[in-house]
Amino acid sequence: MLGLGISLWGQRRAAAAVLDPATLSPHLWLDPSDLTTLFQNSNGTGAVAADNDPVGYIGDKSGNGNHFIEATAAARPIYKTSAGLSWLAFDGVDDSIGGPLVNGFITEAVYDIFCAGIVNTIATDDPSDQPTFNDALFSDGGGLIGLHFRQSAPRMCAFNYDGSPDTANDDYTAGEAFVAHIRHSGGNLSLTQNARATVTVASGDTGSVINPASIGRNRTDTSHAWTDCKFYGMIARKTIFSAGEVAALKTYMGAKVGLVL
């Protein structure tokens, strides 16, 4: 028994320690804990080095050039670090960062996205569960994909628009750390939050994948477009991850937001 216990412990430790997301060939990889990828200015100058530095540029570690930028100083999130964790803080008033077209990391038929965050407060309550009118951790400029949040029966909603809106919803309490795994494949959209059960709905091809991605806001509404949130990272691929890769990514992204998954 003792030997078995040690062996399992050793395997878990090894799996958590050795995962390098680059080996999974993601099409997007944002990691606020890697200061070599963060810059204060949108042109990639001015290294981010300390708590409360503004962030105008997040480099894509996937090597695919899907960098996120913000040219307006007042709209930039700030870098925060505490207790071994690092994140971007968005003010919920007018902060966001974005730019790359979503076809840089998704296709119409398939995408697999992991993101880690905390929504501090949910200020919106659109009953249609569409990202256009709800707070979002990320979204695209056309309102076709995203992860958004609503107050009533508080929930997080993975969204895909295939000619009509489809949402995979799960309970969510503001202030809680989460890793969200959003998968669109085989005519289905699914959302898995942390170690909770997966929620799946039918959803066909995304209507358009040529809109710019944003973090920290929904797409266009000028009254409640911005989200009071913390962003700990995001990894996306145009093909689905294997079951083993999903498990490893959950653990990896969980560690980014202080969860053991």
Binding site: T132, F133, G141, G142, G143, L144, Y161, G207, S208, I210, N211, R219, T220, D221, T222, S223, H224
Partner: peptide, 12 residues
């Protein structure tokens, strides 16, 4: 008070 200016539904 914030003004709600809802943009048209693009859905490109």
């Amino acid at each position: 008070v914030p003004v709600v200016i809802k943009t048209e539904d693009l859905k490109l």
